[in-house]
Design a protein around this nucleic acid. Structure first.
Lengths: 412, 412
DNA sequence: CCAATTAATTCGCATCGCTGATTAAAGCGG
DNA sequence: CCGCTTTAATCAGCGATGCGAATTAATTGG
């Protein structure tokens, strides 16, 4: 139980000030006070301490203020050099890295087009190490300057322990990825689901900068889900990340299919690559979906139907998410979206059919064309988010205590 | 933005103290301090103020303490008379009311076995008024003693405004139920989804007293969903409640069915009552499911299959919930559970098939045989919860601001 | 150059929680 | 029976926090 003392109070206000500076860029003390309802006195005290700690800097340029009389406002901005972090994305066909400064601005990026799925942990961890070191070098800084590394990958991840419980990247379950990367890099490592990473990315840099509550659906090899609620990543039991590909579509267990069996890229391609070397190459290069799009546009009916079916299933799944979470916004990202209308037309019409009348106006659906950079930058945002350290339990996991205390009621 | 000042600090600690006294009944000051990591001084100050406000009372009996030497602990308990609230449940076949004291102990209860669905708002509001007034009278108190009334019903409810956006109880959409009841009773009224009400009920009185994170599935005429996250009800956009019956089962929009079309009580009965007057009576009396159970046990194969299909669909839906929310616990409640194994066997086996391996151990599934009283008491807990007033935004809704601030990205 | 205006800081105050000392209320032992 | 020990609860004083009022700073306008 977090007890509220003056220290916590300060931590909360300090976080809000820092977060406001991050969100609104160069901003004056008065405006911070207006935005978060804090007296000028307190804002001054907190910004003073932030400057002293080197987290923010006064900027004397660009003094835009309400009137233009009176003493000019001193603008404050994050000190880019306050910290550097690395964000990494592990996808089936590539590894992407970015080094960012404290603002999340990219100092260096690197994409390694390698097919890494099903490789053993040690090899993947080695590749991550190489990528991180290379990218850090490219950024012109030393490893010692890097505060932490966030690694994101598809699947079900235990945030705190950095355990990968299930992922298409690994053959095995319960892979201790965090441990392996820490061992190689010797700095703080955060392992996070790719959906949660890009959810943070959208919140910090993308379609959801204005929005503390939304659901994000990542449509790639895997179908994953990120939920932002009140500005915090929603986490399940034991800080598990959420998953969408495991959603079972169908009322009858004997004829039901998983969403991933209909709407993942593998499902759309459905073995097509076996007899089609160009497709095989495209997949290997990570451009499978644009090749599929080209083939559809060249008249391939089988793929057209597959894409349409995937879209239809996704539309239903998204309608279900709207019923279950009632989010003000749903963001779609992922390489599958390069199929464009071949996927989206069916998605939209099936969403419209599946969504109940009363929820039709609730959620705004937005499509983001996220590139590797945004994914990796999202991972960096995860790392930065922990540095910023929101006080009321960075991102609260779902917990159960005294499990023995159950009374009555049967348990399955 | 909630600014953190000493007042908020005190409010937080005060809430924790009060909540601890509520949870653990008669408890001494030292033990409160131990539990919530607060110094004895602070606990004394806060409990002093709570006593002064008449919210709690010192009890000199039952002084069980660690050792039995030294000054005995003075136990503190809620002052039952600090407030009274009414909780009401509107279900298709009955209205249930309870009057509770500040502890949530039931002072009076009333069940009106009336078929109320599809009645106009004014009639239902009148019935609620009558029930509340009657029940308050039975409790031996006056309406003026009642601090607030919480009315729960199935469907999609906007918590703040008390607007019923969709419910099987009302023919129309967007029914201003809160307004209608306020007008009649002239006191604070809260309208809440029945699932959220019983979710609070389980958290306060039932299977989830030890657990701040769980998902509850209410299986009755409607299928509704309550999510407790970090001790708070999870709310969607505009404080909407969540729904499960609208979940679409199936990957193909042309052949998909809503969960409610397979697993609601109406779906199980599936017109059976038309030719069966005893069934019709049982439904009217609200004991439709026990009659169905009897008929199944008497050899009715059609109903057996229907129940089994409902269970199978529910098993899938629950597996989906576990994938999407990763909750440590899932609680099942609702009258449909009286079907017992005829429903649960299929539910369990289809859940087992649908749940991915990596999530198998995540959620504990618990069945609660909730009676009308617990539902209504849950509503009362909603009302009490607002009185206790947790400070950091009683139960946070999902919000979106500056919707115009979107850049790039297409919108469907 | 001075008044007006706006920004930022300083000062003094009230509130809060905490540590350490003090008082209160019981049991234990001679 | 009375004093010692033990534990609970409160009191006094301290440091931290946020806030309002007054003060200082920096700029514009006349």
């Amino acid at each position: 139980m977090k007890t509220a003392d003056p220290e916590l109070m300060r931590a909360i206000n300090r976080f809000h000030v820092l977060d406001t500076i991050r969100r609104y860029g160069a901003i004056s003390r008065v405006e911070i006070g207006d935005r978060i309802q804090l007296s000028p006195t307190t804002v001054s005290a907190i910004t003073g301490s932030l400057i002293e700690d080197g987290l923010i800097l006064p900027k004397h340029e660009g003094d835009l203020r309400g009137g233009n009389r009176g003493r000019p406002r001193v603008m404050l901005a994050l000190n880019p050099k306050a910290a550097r972090v690395v964000g990494a994305k592990i996808a089936a066909t590539r590894l992407a890295f970015v080094v960012t400064d404290f603002q999340g601005d990219v100092l260096a990026e690197l994409v390694l087009p390698l097919r890494v799925d099903r490789l053993p942990l040690s090899v993947i961890a080695d590749l991550v190490e190489d990528g991180v070191r290379r990218c850090v070098l490219d950024a012109g800084i030393a490893m010692a300057d890097v505060k932490s590394v966030a690694v994101s990958l598809p699947g079900i991840i235990e945030h705190g322990t950095g355990l990968v419980r299930a992922s298409s990247i690994f053959r095995d379950a319960d892979v201790p990825l965090k441990e392996a990367v820490v061992e190689r890099l010797g700095i703080d490592v955060i392992v996070e689901s790719d959906a949660n990473a890009i959810t943070m990315g959208e919140h910090w840099f993308g379609q959801a900068r204005d929005c503390d509550d939304f659901v994000l659906v990542a449509i790639e090899d895997n179908l994953t889900l990120g939920v932002m609620h009140g500005g915090q990543i929603f986490r399940g039991a034991r800080e598990l990340s959420l998953t969408l590909g495991d959603m079972v579509m169908g009322a009858d267990p004997d004829h039901a299919v998983k969403l991933a069996d209909v709407a993942s890229e593998k499902a759309i391609i459905n073995g097509e690559e076996i007899n089609n070397p160009r497709m095989r190459d495209a997949i290997r290069l990570g451009s499978g979906m644009s090749h599929v799009r080209d083939m559809i546009e060249a008249g391939d009916n089988k793929l057209r139907v597959a894409a349409s079916n995937a879209g239809a299933a996704l539309g239903i799944a998204i309608a279900n998410l709207v019923a279950l979470f009632a989010p003000p916004r749903v963001i779609l990202v992922g390489s599958t979206l390069t199929l464009g209308p071949h996927l989206l037309d069916a998605l939209q019409s099936s969403f419209a059919k599946a969504i109940p009348q009363s929820l039709r106006e609730v959620a705004q659906i937005v499509i983001e064309n996220a590139d590797d950079r945004l994914w990796a930058r999202g991972a960096a945002a995860v790392a930065l988010g922990e540095l910023y350290g929101s006080p009321w339990g960075t991102t609260g996991p779902a917990r159960t205590f005294n499990a023995d205390a159950l009374e009555g009621g049967k348990s399955l």
